[in-house]
Design a protein around this nucleic acid. Structure first.
Lengths: 209, 209
DNA sequence: CGCTATTTTAAACGCATGTTTAAAATAGTC
DNA sequence: GACTATTTTAAACATGCGTTTAAAATAGCG
């Protein structure tokens, strides 16, 4: 395996578990059995490495997500919100084929990126992959047209928060749940549980003041 | 104002904006116009300072939250989930009386604590303030008794995620919303919008496989 | 005032970080 | 096989961190 890929593989596990700020280049390179200077040689800087780690996932996810959502938008019959959110399941779980524990690792990274490093990753995602957001908004608008643009905005961000935050601490939560409830669970099980939650949240009736 | 309070005031703003790992003692002490060594003299270590910052809020919030929730639990008629979640509004907004921008700062800190520093803050909160969690679970159980303990567990953590994550980026979101929708909004407005969302999420029908 | 206890201060310590350097090793090509 | 380009390596660099030290300043009190 190439040095570049060894670095990427070591980096995304460590970034997911300990955050971007919380992971040093020395940890990454020693985990990858690679010289410290290799990161700066191959990627230029730590910041560029972070972008590369995220791009590897986004480049797999983004086209699959877009086609799943546009399929829903072009459908004859009006989709339910539950169907809109379920459109995420396939593309997200595909990341597990692409890389071991790819789904949970990616979602953890997403959670890290929103809080770590002053939101520079949010800027990166919204500027590099804007279609994901607009397609998503469009699909929700078809499923629930009574919702104003502003209300969609807020509820989509609530949803992002739920997903991203849950996944960024999913390992700890799965551990607790297995201890307390004797119930085997994996990341797909968590996704199955969170979808009804966010679908109901977005579908909540509008309160007028 | 005492040196100790100057440090606490500077620390919680900086911690909220840049995270615990992302804020150095030198930033805090220079913002507070205080000598660098004062942190270690008055608090012992950076970790103890973090605990002190959180305790200042939790000691105000926790008793108010407990009494609001136990009031709901002891009521004659069965509360709705919306009422359960609304019980948080008063105690949370009270933090604004206690300290300028107290509500959003505290919620941002909460969000930081869940992702920063390997979850030591979650340990701190659950061990130091366990009643908040058990009272909350009890209230939800009364409002929606069909929900199993495990499902309550998951949905409460989804809710925590929604709230905490939204608030940790609330300032950026409020800015965007005001630009895009010409709608004046503050932290109370965000809370008003998120309550129906999480209430509907927790109230979602149970899917049986 | 004079003494003690508390607080503040400037400086340094040891350590970890991201990055750069320049030499060594390897791969690729004619 | 010799020459070049690429990659790897060990070492050092500059910087920032949390913490500690010991002296100076201040406050409290009989």
């Amino acid at each position: 395996m190439s040095t570049k890929n060894k670095i990427l593989d070591a980096a995304d596990v460590l970034f997911a578990n300990k955050g971007f700020n919380g992971t040093s280049l020395r940890e990454i390179t020693s985990q990858a059995n690679v010289n410290l200077a290799a990161v700066n040689y191959h990627f230029g800087s730590k910041k560029e490495l972070i972008k590369a780690v995220m791009s590897r996932y986004m480049d797999e996810l983004s086209p699959r997500l877009e086609s799943a959502l546009s399929l829903i938008c072009q459908s004859e019959l009006k989709p339910t919100l539950h169907e809109v959110f379920s459109a995420f399941i396939g593309p997200l779980l595909y990341l597990n084929e692409f890389k071991e524990n790819g789904t949970s690792t990616f979602l953890q990274l997403l959670g890290r990126g929103y809080t770590d490093s002053q939101g520079f990753l949010r800027w990166f995602l919204t500027t590099q992959y804007p279609d994901v957001f607009t397609n998503f908004t469009k699909a929700v608008n078809i499923a629930y047209p009574e919702l104003s643009a502003e209300e969609i905005f807020w509820r989509l961000h609530f949803t992002m928060g739920t997903i991203v935050f849950t996944m960024s601490s999913s390992e700890a939560l799965i551990d607790i749940a297995q201890n307390d409830f004797n119930n085997k669970l994996d990341i797909a099980g968590v996704i199955e549980r969170v979808i009804p939650y966010v679908a109901a949240g977005v579908a909540a009736p509008i309160i007028h003041n």
